[in-house]
Amino acid sequence: MAALDAAQSAVVSGAAELAVPADAAYLELVGQFVSFLARRRGFDEQVVARIRLAVDEACANALDHGRLVGDGNDGNDAPLRVVCESTADGLRIRVRDRGRAFDPATLAAPLVGAPLEKRRIGGLGVYLMRRIMDSVEVWPTDDGKELVLTKCLDSGKVVAGDD
């Protein structure tokens, strides 16, 4: 099953993990962390910038929605955790928070291509992630969820202008 392959394919070198307070002020640091590892994995600078954007969107989403655990624990003190793993064909990034899992494929696309009056302010983050990355999956964890992003080195994905 392709989805399981993307989330569970073997890690070929050690994973790197960054845990930061659940505060948007740390998004820039997460971006530097991911950029460093994507560059090290061999992605060119344009793709490094795209991966950084996708992870930034995943983290911003986690900060917005990642605390909605219905068990009385609002998770406010939980850090945002970002794990980067080098796989045989590229990079896999896991963004972990205390929120509920959801299926990103079920979210409405933000009417890209629609005229101004029909554009909604929202939904863009998941849309950007899906346009940039080769896979975007969400899995439940023991204490919340992880959003798993993968990018292959030989990805032929063209992100701009191919709606």
């Binding site: 911003a60 101004l116 009056e117 302010i121 863009l124």
Partner: peptide, 19 residues
């Protein structure tokens, strides 16, 4: 040097207000 969807939302709001 960097713009995420949060910045896009500001731009979209601005375009709607301009109209």
């Amino acid at each position: 040097d960097y713009l995420s969807s949060a910045g896009l939302r500001v731009l979209l709001g601005l375009a709607k207000r301009a109209r």
